[in-house]
Structure formats: C-alpha cells, structure tokens
Nucleic acid binder design. Structure first.
Lengths: 224, 224
DNA sequence: CAGAGTCGTTACGAAGTTGTAAAACTGTTG
DNA sequence: CAACAGTTTTACAACTTCGTAACGACTCTG
C-alpha cells in the first residue's frame, strides 16, 4: 500500500482528502503545517506528497525546495487557491511535478495522483553511484561528474559486475564466467585490457587506481 | 461547438445562464428539474453540466451521483445558494468538480467553466508530446509542428512503445516482444528498419538522431 | 637483487553491429 | 486476381567493438 503525505493547514480539506485517499486504497498521512510535513516526508518516504501552497510558517514552495534539497525525488503535487498567482515556471523550478487549483474535484485530484505515480514509477531509474561516477542501469548510461561517457557493451557489463560485487577479490575466471558467460572462452588477458579501459575512463589517475584495484596473482577488486 | 447542460428549477436564472453561454459560444441546453436534466445528460452527453444543488424532486446531489453512477466523466459544476450548508467534503464525495455560490457574476461562472473544461479536456484527449512532435493516442494521429504525418501501424506501435518507455535502454528482443507480440517472430533487423523510418519522419537530421538513439550492442533508447 | 611470474598498455586484424536501400513477401481491396 | 500499401528480409558498406599478441614495467620471492 502506498503512503501519500498531505500537508495542508485547512483541517477540513485535509480530512476530506485523507478520506478520499483511504477510499482509493492509499495510506494517507496528514500534516497540519509545513515543518511537520517536511519531517514526515523525511521519516516516511511517502510515495507521493500533496502540499498546500499557502500556509503559515513553511509554505508549500519552501517544503518543495527542502524536500528536493534532501535529494528526494518523491512525486509532489501542489495545491493552490484559485487566487494565487502561480505560474508553472515557478512550480517547475522548485521541483513540483503537478499542481491542482482549489476548489478541485475528487476525480480530478485522484486522476492527477494516479497519472503522476504512473509517470514517475516508469521512471524508476535505478542509479548506482560511487565517487563521482553514476551508472544508470535503466538508461544504460555512465556519467562522471554528470557528464555522459561512452561505454561499449563489454566495458559496461564489466563495470556493472564490479558494482554488484564491491570490495571483493574477483579472479579473472570469475569475471570471465560472469561477464562473458560460459559460451565464449576469451583469454584471461582480455579482462586486463578492459580493466585498463575502465580505469582510463573512470579513475582520476589511471596510473594510481583507487577503485579498480589489482589483486596480484588473483585478479581485481572494486572499491566504491 | 460544445454543449453545456444547465439544470435549475429557477426559470429566470436558467434563461440568464443560457443566454450567457450562448454569447460565449456554447450550445446551452436547459432542464427545469433533476429528472429531465439527468435524462438529457444521458442523451446529449454534454461537454459540461451545471446543476443547482437545491431543487424539488431530484436534487443536484442526486443528479451528480446518478451521472457518476452511469460512469460518465462529464465535468460538473454545482450551483449552490449562499444559505446552503455546503461543504467541500460532500461535493468531493459526490463527484462534483467545482462549485459556485449564488449569487454569482457572469464572469466568474464563465471563468470556472473554462477552467474546468481546460483541466478535464487535457485528461481525456491523451496527447503525448516530445520536441515538436505530438502523438494523439485517442485519435491515433502523429503530428510534427502541428502538421499531420502518415504513420503505418507498425511505425505507430513502435513509436508509442518508445513513448511509454522514455529514456530506457531497450533491447531489440524487448521491443519485438512488446510491439510485435509473442506470436510473430520477425528478424531483429525488422526493428532497425522501422527505427530508420521513425527517424526519417521525426528527427530533424536523421543522420544525427537526437531522440531515437542507438545503444550499441543492445538496441535503442528513446530520449524525449 | 635476480629471475620468474604477473600486469599495464598499445596497436591491429577479426568479428560483430548498424544504417540503408532494395528485393521479397504478405495481406487487403476494389 | 491485379494493384497496392505495408511489412519483413536480405545484402552490403560503414562503422564499432573485441580479443590477443607483443613488450616493457612492475611485483614478489628466495
């Protein structure tokens, strides 16, 4: 069951939305102000956040910013009163994913919630990272300091194998079997050649590797 | 021209709203009571319904419920007298999308109508867009810079599959299974042939694709 | 510190992959 | 059944990637 955090100072509306979410099969968590809402967001890591724009204390805009500042990518919908001069640009800038103008219909809000969850869940981009390197497993893209690098298939497969086996001494045979499979029988030196390329691309100083370490007489060890 | 159904027992107000809508370019249909209003809703499938809350016979609340019970998703605005103890909870529960308190100004009502139509229409006609390309999933039409392009079935299916899986490395087998199904077993090169056509039709420079990227040794990745 | 083993690096031909056009095939329609 | 649009396969050039040999540098051991 997915948790949805509702942050709104209007108790009436808060409860209404809570009920609605419950009916729809969500687990609603209600917060009356921005500060506790933000804390709940951190603690519960909800599947989605609904936050009122205009609140005493921490406003919706600030909650948004703080959540994003924490690196949380939780989908977030802003609720705004009809009078508020809100524009999409601002909302996008602060990291909101959608907004709904009050008063809104139950169906509309639920539709937006589902749409957003659908959008974001398909973007379940699994990213593994070490040092200043990010490996996006769904996009199959490797980036160093945010800059995309070109990786060939063999390089990429080898890298992900290392990522899956951090800080373990791996023999060349283990690597060959896992990365190249049991079909092909390349020379064990092939592994070295590819490790070289990984180092050249990912190590700050490929002469003094800090992540792709050699285990003399055995093989390699990846240190994140 | 969009039909707007007005259900209100107050003949005076009904006519006023009717005139107002007519001026605004809508086709107003007037109903004096809940029962005939509901029947009209079923028969005409209007683009929007305005319904008075307090009426003899079938009340606005009941019209609302019945319309929704029929599975109709027609946008619906409730008109309520200032005395009515209306709360949003009830409105949300019965599936109304907005409400206006009597007495209201013409401009306010029209603003609400337009806002609601805008909101809901964007949900019904599912249009996915990227760059200067728009794909209308309900009409099954692809347009580039507003100009319709002819897409064959295979091309269209492939395109929507890419749209549904943005920014993910997709192997040719994944594509074949999802787009061609498990029944037919075309060559994986078939995928390439169709990607070529997508690029020719949608990329500014098909020689340097910016959206339909190849992932060497793997397949393709669609970048919106 | 010498020698044996091991590793890092480079270069290059072989093997594999992709883009494209054209041919072959399929199914539909008048 | 001919014409036709759409689809799949084939063929091949262009391009990318791979595996390995070669060799110098490094590491370990006695």
């Amino acid at each position: 069951m997915q948790t949805v955090l509702v942050i709104d100072d209007d108790g009436n509306l808060r409860d209404t939305i809570g009920l609605m979410l419950e009916k729809e099969g969500f687990r609603p968590v209600l917060a009356a102000d921005g500060k506790t809402g933000f804390e709940q967001a951190l603690a519960l890591k909800p599947a989605l956040i609904l936050v009122d724009l205009r609140m005493p204390g921490l406003t919706g805009v600030e909650v948004c910013k703080q959540v994003r500042a924490q690196g949380m990518k939780t989908p977030l919908i802003v609720l705004s009163a009809i009078g508020d001069e809100m524009d999409k640009v601002l909302l996008l800038e602060i990291g909101a994913d959608d907004y709904v103008v009050k008063p809104f219909g139950a169906r509309e809000l639920l539709a937006r919630i589902h749409a957003l969850l659908r959008r974001t869940s398909s973007e379940d981009t699994k990213v593994v990272a070490f040092a200043d390197v990010e490996v996006d497993l769904t996009r199959r893209v490797v980036a160093k300091r945010g800059e995309e690098l070109k990786f060939t298939r063999a390089e990429y497969n080898l890298l992900t194998y290392f990522l899956q086996n951090p800080d373990r001494a791996l023999t060349r045979d283990m690597i060959l079997n896992s990365v190249w499979g049991y079909e092909s029988f390349p020379n064990t030196r092939t592994v070295d050649a590819h490790v070289v390329r990984l180092r050249q691309k990912l190590e700050p100083d490929s002469g003094a590797p800090r992540h792709f370490l050699t285990v003399h007489g055995v093989g390699y060890r990846f240190l994140p």
